[in-house]
Each structure stands twice: as C-alpha cells, then as structure tokens.
C-alpha cells in the first residue's frame, strides 16, 4: 500500500508544470564519470568507445561545453550528476571538468524521475583517476582528437 507521502507526491506530480522535489535515497556507488551525450546518442560510436582514456579529451570538451556529466556505475546504470561535493556548477564547472573519466566512489542522494537517475554527490570517497584504458582497443574517439602537429612531433622524436 502506498504511504501518504507517496500518494501526495504522486498527486502533485500528475499536475503539469507543478515543481515537486522527489523523495531521494542515500546511496554509495562506484563508477566512471562520463560524457552523457556521446554515451546516450551514439554520435561517436558504440558505448564502449566513448568512455575511458579513448574518449577522455572529447569528454573534457563536452564537460567544459556544459554537456551533463554522468556516473556510469559498475552495473551499467547511468546517474546524471547534478552536484559534486560543494560544486553545483554542473554547466561546465571546474570540478566536473577536471574529474572527467575518473573512476570514483561516491556517496550521495539518488533521485529517480521519469526514467532517469539523478545523483547529488555529497562526498567523493575515493578517486582512482583514469583507469578504463579503452585507447588500447579503440585509439582515440573521435579520431582527430590529437592534432596532426602533435602526432608528427612525437613521431619525429
């Protein structure tokens, strides 16, 4: 049987245009901070190619450009990250940019709304850096990530 709070929340949520905060759930989750646009849209290829080191620079471009950063959990669940610790600048903020593709453990509040998971991270409890070495299989995505001049310089060394 639905509790009174849920009945009231459901009733209000059914009214178009009425804002109502969801009831959150405290969780701890481990995963990789990813570029959600490339992951969901397939615009750069399949999901395995748009995570980890292969996609690191593109993910930084997207994070700086204000594309939402997500946390890809070990079970494949994607959490849209709305706040990272004290930083709620999810539209291109420094914390979101500098932690791109890091594997982290986080504690925070999970809110589910209309088929998406939203995560408000209270604390990052560990950060292993970039550990998903996808460049070994996919190179870099997109393929022109590293400028030709940089490639040529390294090859001339």
């Amino acid at each position: 049987m639905l509790g009174l709070k849920r009945v009231l929340a459901l009733g209000v949520a059914l009214l178009p245009g009425i804002a109502v905060a969801s009831e959150g759930e405290r969780i701890a989750v481990k995963g990789e901070l990813i570029d959600t646009w490339c992951y969901f849209s397939g615009v750069m290829g399949g999901p395995d190619a748009v995570v980890g080191s292969a996609h690191h620079t593109c993910a930084m471009w997207c994070a700086a450009g204000g594309i939402p950063v997500g946390l890809l959990g070990e079970d494949g669940t994607v959490y849209m990250v709305l706040k990272l610790g004290e930083d709620d600048d999810s539209n291109g903020g420094d914390t979101f940019l500098t932690m791109t593709n890091d594997t982290i453990e986080a504690e925070g509040m999970l809110y589910e709304r209309d088929g998406l998971n939203y995560l408000v991270v209270a604390e990052v409890t560990s950060n292993e850096g970039v550990t998903n070495l996808t460049h070994e299989d996919f190179g870099v995505t997109p393929g022109n990530t590293i400028p030709d001049a940089v490639v040529d310089k390294v090859l001339e060394e």
Binding site: A21, S22, G24, M80, L82, M109, Y118, V120
Partner: peptide, 9 residues
C-alpha cells in the same frame, strides 16, 4: 533548474 526540481535545492 533540475537540482531544484528533483532535490528542492
């Protein structure tokens, strides 16, 4: 604001 909408912040 999504953070406001889902979490009341």
């Amino acid at each position: 604001d999504i953070l406001c909408e889902v979490a009341g912040d």
